[in-house]
Amino acid sequence: MASNIKVFIRVRPGKAAEGFQADPERGALSFKLPDTEPDYYVNNQKTAHNFQFDGVLGMQVKQEEVLETVARPVIQDVLNGVNGTIFAYGQTGSGKTFTITGGAEHYEDRGLIPRTLRMMFEAFRKGPAQYRMYISYLEIYQDSGYDLLRDDSVRNLQDLPKVQLREDEDGNMHLRNLSVNLAATEEDALNLLFLGDTNRVVAETPMNDASTRSHCLFIIWVDSTQEGSDVVRRSKLHLVDLAGSERVSQTGVNGKLLAEAKSINVSLHYLERVIVALHSRSKGNQVHVPYRDSMMTSVLRDSLGGNCRTTMVGCIAAEASNLPESMSTCRFAQRVAQITNTARVNEELDPNLLIARLKREVSELKREVQVARSSGEGEPEAFCFVAAG
């Protein structure tokens, strides 16, 4: 089933600039830049910009509403065997991590990951199938992958196991050395989330007191089997917190933070190149899509133009100083909305289940043969007794 990537824009709470307006009912945003400032009005440049999306999540939106609007349709597809991806994109400090992971101070501030885990385990208990969940947590820091779920005593990123990308003969990407952890209960899953978040690279920057300096992918693998069936549905859900873009000239960072900012911006540039190429393909042009340019785009290959149901949350800030970055995020989101994915149910025959079913059938047939033989031995004796009389 082919469908375009769904795009929602979330506006961070704050004092909105005079020229900014959001209309959540229509899914519309408008920016009107002041024509008195040379930065915004050079060579008769356009000052009014309007955008339309699948939805706009206003400043007062609750985390539960974000789950219902953005995540529930994707979660339902994953439970039915279809791959899903939800990723947050935007400038540093715009609310991406709050959207994906949530805040730690209040229970109602939980983000999409813990709420998704709860929703899935509730579905497991009610659903007609038998489900199993596995969890992986990948961090991509300066284009190198690290497994965040190995050891809670690790204090340095370099001590974490490095994850390598491998491509098979069919062009599918595999993450080598990334642990896959069984989560039998919601508590197990939340403990894994807590462990991974503890190992993430975070730093204080001029734009954010706790800025995530890497891209993180929380991966939920779901296996489901209908009772009496040999077929297993295997799906995966990527919940992606992309590192924030930032203008180095504005933040004034240096040293390690400068190197991190450069790496983040380069990787986001590669992501944009992939989006632009896919956008061009959607118009019928035969162009090369440079997935292999970075580890992040390689990992997200299925999520962008592949076998996946994908949703983007563009996070923006409405203050006057942030309007250029917010408009850039909206332009990027418009291109993403043009990409078409073809998602399908991932089913495969499980040989172990097949063997178990065949053994049950053989056992049942043996019992039927035994019953038939027993019945057959009794009938001739009864017949002979009547004939002799």
Rank of each mutant, 00 (worst) to 15 (best):
R331L: 03
P38A: 04
A343S: 12
R118M: 10
L157P: 00
T185C: 08
V299G: 01
F20M: 08
A17C: 03
G81I: 03
G95R: 01
R10L: 04
M119V: 11
A189K: 08
V231S: 07
D209S: 14
D23V: 10
I264P: 04
E204P: 10
H288Q: 09
A183C: 14
V78T: 10
G55A: 03
N352I: 11
V266A: 15
V369Q: 07
E364P: 06
S326V: 05
A243W: 02
L148Q: 05
T92K: 09
A189R: 08
I140D: 03
A104I: 08
G244F: 00
L138T: 01
F385C: 15
G284Q: 07
V61D: 04
G19Y: 01
K359V: 04
V386Q: 15
E105H: 06
E319K: 14
K6G: 04
T311A: 13
I219G: 06
H238S: 02
G95N: 07
V276H: 14
H238Y: 07
Y89N: 05
N4A: 08
A2K: 14
R72A: 13
A129E: 12
M296F: 03
F383M: 12
I135S: 09
E139L: 05
I264R: 01
S298C: 12
V240C: 01
Q76W: 00
G14H: 07
L193K: 02
N208D: 15
L190S: 05
D188Y: 06
